[in-house]
């Protein structure tokens, strides 16, 4: 049972101090014990490096921009809607989509760890997991947005979603003007990962 280990040296301190060597040592021991299949590790890495990433989320956003029925269903209960597109799995079991408007800008953080919608956006970027983002996003979201070069109109309220449970949030950015007639693939190119976290706006065409 987990408990406070501060009264004695924690097990991790027995490993080499260099981080790459620490991870290597763990991998070696676990492989020798028959607890890890090295081929499975390659497959996990390949999944998040090459197969699951923010283009999944961008497709959801583009569909929401193009199809009012899809958009309404997504905002009502996102989990089955994105699962129908094949976007379900680890760290995306309970999805909520939140829509930016002229009145409200949404932004997502996990102040306690690094919760993030993996099936839609992949592995979170370094900055999302940084102390600076975790500490500042809830108290001064507008200053954080300024770090990304974003300034919101004074009439727009900021709503920061702190992912404290197993619910994962996807921001639907506002559709830029001048995109009438664009198809799904063209619209997807306007939707960055950061726009779906809420630290950027959709790109202008």
């Amino acid at each position: 049972m987990p408990h406070d280990h501060s009264d004695h040296e924690q097990p991790h301190a027995l490993l080499p101090s260099d981080p790459a060597l620490r991870v290597k040592a763990l991998e070696t021991i676990l492989t020798e014990k028959g607890l890890i299949d090295p081929a499975a590790l390659e497959d996990i890495i390949d999944t998040y490096e090459n197969r699951i990433g923010p283009r999944n989320g961008a497709r959801v956003v583009a569909k929401a921009w193009l199809d009012d029925g899809f958009r309404a269903a997504l905002l009502e209960d996102a989990t089955p809607v994105v699962a129908d597109l094949g976007y379900y799995g680890r760290q995306g079991e309970h999805m909520v989509a939140v829509e930016n408007t002229a009145d409200v800008h949404n932004m997502v953080v996990c102040t306690l760890c690094s919760c993030y919608p993996w099936p839609l956006l992949g592995i979170p970027p370094g900055w999302y997991k940084s102390d600076a983002y975790r500490a500042r996003a809830v108290r001064e979201p507008r200053k954080v947005l300024a770090d990304f070069g974003v300034t919101l109109p004074n009439e727009t309220a900021v709503r920061v979603w702190d992912s404290t449970a197993e619910v994962r949030y996807l921001v639907i950015p506002q559709r830029p003007a001048g995109t009438e007639g664009m198809d799904e693939e063209a619209l997807m190119a306007l939707v960055s990962r950061d726009a779906m976290i809420g630290t950027a706006l959709a790109r202008q065409p």
């Binding site: 990433g53 923010p54 970027p125 370094g126 900055w127 940084s130 102390d131 600076a132 983002y133 500490a135 500042r136 954080v144 770090d147 990304f148 960055s192 990962r193 950061d194 630290t199």
Partner: peptide, 9 residues
Amino acid sequence: DGPVIPEPE
């Protein structure tokens, strides 16, 4: 804490 540093996708 210091600035948040954006990074490429």
